[in-house]
Simulated scan of single mutants.
Amino acid sequence: MTHWTTTPIDTRVLRGALELERTAHGVLPHRLPARARRLFPDAYLARVESQPSGVRLAFRTRATAVELDVLATKRAYRGGPRQPDGVYDLLVDGRLTGQASAPEGRLELIDMADQSSTVRPGPPGTVAFTGLPAEAKDVEVWLPQTETTELIALRTDAPAEPVPDRGRRVWLHHGSSISHGSTAASPTQTWPALAAARGGVELVNLGFSGNALLDPFTARAIRDTPADLISLKIGINLANADLMRVRGFTTAVHGFLDTIRDGHPDTPLLVVSPVLCPVQEHTPGPLAVDPDSPGLRFRATGDPADAATGRLTLTVIRAELARVTTHRAADDPNITYLDGRSLYGEADFAELPLPDGAHPDPAGHRRIGERFAELVFGAGGVWSG
């Protein structure tokens, strides 16, 4: 008979979340604090900030078996099939050694037209990993990056304790669905997770699908979160949504950076422009599903000529971000600009095209993560120290 030890799920063993909400079942990790959540303009952001990209349990144990009780929220789009179950990645001493899913849970039915949804109740489930080595080891369980997950109980067949502080730098990254990892194979295979592993840093991933929109409450959350390194991948969602013109964009970028600097006056800050996305390089948004495509594929619906009047394209955004960063660098030696096409550009698109016209596949995530690690954390990189 297995003798289980239950470890409380709190900030001592949970990493990558900004806040834990107590629920009727357990705790729900959030990637934005309650004050920000009270200001959310729509349900879409509420959904994606609760999806625990980069959130993981980390503990030291001699256990050979680990069980995690969860209440997951699955997704389905009206008129389409249920999305695949989220994947839990098990790392032992930093190496991926197991994967599992929790088929049970709630089901959220989403209307893509307006992002409204309804939720059907469902039961909790258990994610189990067995056959672990019996010696002392550091264990991490990474939660599914696109599946809202309430954590109910953590059990091990030997005592578990928080992992001692290893003195690693904390890297906070903010970006869009690509940073969130919406099309990555699993939570440790998002490009930020891959880059963090190669760079030897602790990741806080504030990538929000469709919602990297220069919201002031997001800037305040970054301002108030301890971090040694901060990167901001800005632009593509603003073009996707056709949310701003260049005049408002420039002011909003300055305001976003000013707010972050209020809390992190000297923290190394990297501004990253969008990776290559041919459908929006020269064509403004909004982005829409292409009705003529046999599969899911996006297209930009604006008029390229309107870029001359201030509508945003990725080309316009890159030029403006480079100008803003250069301007600020005169008084801020710790701010740097990185052209996103150095992470994924024309040659990469030819080799690894975007399957839906907007998002990389798992191989694309690996390419971006490797490039970021090389250019930013590698020898001679922006943050090589």
Rank of each mutant, 00 (worst) to 15 (best):
T6E: 15
P8L: 08
D10N: 14
E19H: 13
E21D: 12
R22P: 00
A24Y: 01
V27D: 02
V27R: 08
P29T: 03
P29G: 01
L32M: 14
A36E: 06
A36D: 05
R37M: 14
L39P: 00
Y44R: 03
Q51E: 15
F59H: 03
T61H: 02
T61K: 03
A63E: 06
A65E: 15
V66A: 06
D69P: 03
T73V: 11
A76P: 02
R82C: 01
Q83M: 14
D85N: 14
D85R: 02
V87R: 06
D89Q: 06
D89F: 08
L91C: 13
V92W: 10
D93G: 05
G94D: 10
P103Q: 11
L107S: 07
L107K: 12
I110L: 05
D111Q: 06
A113V: 13
D114M: 03
D114T: 03
Q115F: 12
V119D: 05
P121Y: 02
P123S: 10
V127I: 11
A128D: 06
E135H: 15
E135A: 15
V139M: 07
E140V: 03
L143H: 03
E147Q: 14
E150A: 14
P159T: 13
P159Q: 03
V163M: 04
V163W: 00
P164W: 10
H173A: 07
G175C: 02
G175Y: 01
I178Y: 05
W191I: 11
L194R: 15
A196H: 00
A197L: 04
V201E: 05
E202N: 09
G207N: 06
G207E: 06
F208P: 00
S209L: 02
G210M: 11
A212C: 15
L213K: 05
L214P: 00
D215Y: 10
P216C: 06
A221K: 07
I222E: 07
I222Q: 10
R223N: 07
D228R: 08
G235D: 13
N237Y: 05
L238S: 09
N240M: 04
D242C: 14
L243M: 10
R245C: 03
V246P: 00
F249G: 06
T251S: 10
T251I: 10
R261Y: 08
D262N: 03
P268A: 12
V271W: 04
V272K: 00
P274T: 14
V275S: 12
V275Q: 13
Q280G: 09
G285C: 09
G295T: 15
D303P: 01
P304Y: 02
A305D: 13
D306G: 02
A308W: 14
A308G: 15
A308D: 15
G310Y: 03
L312V: 11
T315K: 09
I317K: 08
R318Y: 09
A322D: 09
V324C: 04
R328K: 03
A329H: 15
N334G: 14
I335W: 02
I335G: 12
T336D: 01
T336P: 00
E346F: 12
P353G: 02
L354I: 12
P355V: 07
D356N: 13
D356H: 04
A358S: 13
H359D: 06
P362S: 06
G369H: 08
F377W: 11
G378Y: 14
G378S: 08
V382A: 08
S384E: 12
